[in-house]
Write a protein that binds this DNA or RNA. Structure first.
Lengths: 213, 213
DNA sequence: TAGATTGTTAATCGATTAACAATC
DNA sequence: TAGATTGTTAATCGATTAACAATC
């Protein structure tokens, strides 16, 4: 990416949010934005915005601010949105199918190419044109097709075996919706979406707020 | 919750993970665990575990460690899992229905009581026994039923109006899957699940890892 | 030029880690 | 009692915020 020093997780997690806000600005026809103005909209400090961006380069201009379209585009490149990705869904139940049906992914260049399941009722079906194959065929599929990312929407008990197989086949990215932390080799990346954990966090906040009335 | 000093977001986000690991230990029949042993399993430091827990009280015993069942139970109480919650789903498309179908929520005491949508094809249907009502009926429903949490799985354009109405009716918790940051009054809590942001974060990591080969 | 706002260095704040006395 | 491990204080580390010189 050009930058050398290690970027902290906190910064990386803010990048998609910057990207989203800049996209919104463009839709509203706003072409120019200062860190001050963006900080007001995003509820963070202008200093943090400038620090974050300067991890990757100087995208602004003194006295002017940032060109929204240019900055949007540059953050897109930093995130890797300037190319497309092949994805597969492992576990084609409700959540897996919901993700397959989410058409917006394609606009961003995320293409779900195949889905897998062990349930004979699902195998052979297709969802929005995406075929659901038997899980037994997964290994062969991954060996014969380029797969950038595996989306794990399967029960946790099955996750470790599947992950092992996919790692052995060279899959480097896992978007993990199974309620389990994965053990992967060096160089393999995991992003967890632990829905139950997320909901519990909300409960804590709601209860805490009601106690502090 | 008894504790007085403010608990940081970092700690709160780790609580469900502790809860999950302790539940796993119990399933394996492990009754006793030291912070050292737990730190090995969770890949964090023992020091952090002890610091985190001591925000809420002293749950362990010198020379012994922690009783897994007791600690699990106590963290459950801290999270508010000792009571049940009424939830509604706003936006009953693929993702909304997938969440309704996720039966595990009920085991934890999270009950989805009703769903809403504007799509006439969905209104009148029911999913796993949960009725889908017209969005117009939402306000009346919330005024006549106890609703702890609203799950927002609707397009972002519709989110602000719905949130305004629900806040006015006294809903205090939002589990937000719409691709937008919500503006809510003091005392109302939001937990965001920004799926696209999450996927972009994964892309960054995957690309970064491949550059550093 | 004068005004605005960046990029960047320095100061502050908070979170994590280390250390150890207390104690089971 | 001796050994183990907590609860808690102190040290370190990193992230956020503030400040300001550079410059468009």
């Amino acid at each position: 990416m050009g930058q050398d020093k290690k970027i902290s997780a906190a910064v990386i997690h803010r990048l998609p949010r910057y990207y989203r806000y800049l996209g919104d600005l463009l839709e509203k026809g706003i072409t120019r934005i200062s860190s001050k103005e963006l900080s007001n909209r995003m509820n963070i400090t202008a200093s943090q915005i400038r620090q974050d961006l300067n991890n990757f380069g100087g995208f602004g201009q003194q006295g002017y601010g940032y060109n929204a379209a240019y900055l949007h585009d540059e953050i897109g490149k930093i995130l890797g949105l300037d190319r497309s990705y092949h994805m597969i869904v492992i576990g084609s139940g409700n959540l897996g199918q919901a993700l397959i049906n989410y058409a917006n992914f394609e606009k961003r260049g995320f293409f779900i190419r195949a889905a897998f399941d062990i349930n004979p009722k699902l195998v052979g079906m297709s969802v929005r044109g995406i075929p659901i194959y038997d899980l037994d065929e997964m290994e062969n599929y991954v060996k014969t097709h380029a797969v950038d990312i595996a989306i794990l929407t399967l029960p946790r008990s099955q996750a470790p075996d599947v992950v092992k197989t996919l790692c052995d086949c060279g899959v480097k990215g896992f978007w993990n919706f199974s309620h389990m932390d994965l053990d992967v080799p060096e160089g393999v990346c995991v992003e967890n979406v632990h829905l139950t954990d997320s909901l519990m966090t909300l409960l804590y906040k709601v209860n805490d707020a009601s106690h502090n009335l």
